[in-house]
Nucleic acid binder design. Structure first.
Lengths: 233, 233
DNA sequence: ACAAAAGTGTTGAGCGTACACCCATGG
DNA sequence: CCATGGGTGTACGCTCAACACTTTTGT
């Protein structure tokens, strides 16, 4: 069909801020661009939405194709849309950005579309490193969203495995917020906030008393009262 | 099919949830659709984004064209994007939704594009009334966003004039949250939260002691500590 | 004088912070 | 037996909800 629309046409993409904790630091997943524009530059995983595809589905598909971690995503929420007329030299492209969280220890699969998918510390991506398009801004928004969502949702549990200790959860908060937290007070708050329940098992990690294992309570996402960001030390 | 682009083509629209308080009830601005699809049905103001236009600019322009209130908007933030493949019978349309707040007493201008722009109570729009497209869902998301943003931002001040009394502000919270609040406690909280400052004037509304007028402190948008939603009575 | 709304005082309950202390394990 | 991390006890200070009370006006 000849294009006779009375309305302007756009391309729509999805881009995903994928966060995880590695080596006690917040990392984001980035891929090296294989073609222009920005060939060779790091970018957030993402790509063009298919004609009959939902936006969320597109985010998961692109994540799987480019990094192989699509099925491991523990949480995926819409971050916002970015549509400056000049944000993409190929034309008028609106990108719907998503925030995804992975548990620690997930590696980008080899043999996927993108020759290189890598975890990079958020600090360096937001520091000197230059990302493609407006991805630096999208990443910054994603990190800020994660910081505030830790306060009043169960998002932290998406950064750890299905069974976790209170100390693992505490590291998540400490790393994402960049503060030290009182271990005792944190333990009380988190075990009485209603979003985690003991599995009954316990586990030994190095010296010290074995820690009880908890799991995330199905469907409990609101934290009441919220965990406050107040630092210790 | 002659479309030779290597990527699928979309239309992009903006839709705006415009909230204001009228007659002690939360209202939203809706326009009657003049053409198909959904001809004659109420819809959120909005329309197609121009080729060289930013998304926020498009929201303001459409609001001005369809309702004449574009310049009176006191707050405009992105709500999210809606892109189900079937959400619009005209084709693949992704809509970027915005949340706008107006002070009370703003009327939709006559002589604008839309024959009919009207304030309607949110309760009826989310109740029986049937809106065009997925606008009911967008409106619901907008109202929920407003409810939670009252807690920890200065959004409430956008619902009142540039100078306002503490009681006016309290009515905003009571109407949007649908609860009664203790006048004394509210007064203390709000005047010590740092986002309002006295103008020095005072004003008389009916019987009772005259109320001091306040204005919103420029740039103060975060509420610390947040106002809690706990009801009274 | 009375009603009504603005604004301040007061009090008791509950929560958060800080930190002491006990528990259970590895070396 | 010591070091290390898990987990509990406790006390002090602060905030908040509830509500009594004072202030300032209209009728």
């Amino acid at each position: 069909m000849v294009y006779t629309s009375e309305h302007p046409i756009f391309y729509v993409t999805v881009d995903v801020v994928v966060l995880a904790i590695r080596d006690d630091a917040l990392h984001a997943l980035v891929v090296e661009r294989g073609s222009n524009p920005f060939k060779g530059r790091w970018a957030l995983p993402g790509g063009f939405v298919e004609p009959e595809e939902g936006l969320r589905d597109a985010a998961v598909r692109e994540l799987e194709e480019e990094t192989g971690v699509g099925t491991r995503v523990r949480r995926l929420e819409q971050l916002g849309s970015y549509g400056d007329p000049d944000r993409d030299p190929r034309g008028r492209v609106v990108s719907v950005a998503w925030l995804a969280v992975l548990p620690h220890g997930v590696a980008p699969a080899s043999g996927s579309d993108a020759a290189d998918a890598e975890w990079k510390p958020v600090s360096s991506l937001l520091g000197g490193e230059r990302l493609a398009f407006d991805h630096r801004s999208i990443l910054a928004d994603g990190v800020e969203r994660a910081r505030s969502k830790l306060e009043y949702t169960a998002m932290a549990t998406a950064f750890v495995g299905p069974k976790f200790t209170v100390a693992e959860l505490r590291r998540v908060y400490e790393v994402v917020w960049g503060v030290g937290l009182d271990a005792g007070n944190f333990h009380r708050k988190v075990t009485s906030a209603g979003f985690v329940e003991p599995t009954g098992d316990s586990v030994q990690r190095g010296p010290g008393r074995p820690a009880a294992l908890y799991r995330h309570v199905e469907g409990a996402d609101e934290l009441n009262p919220p965990l406050t960001r107040s630092a210790l030390r």
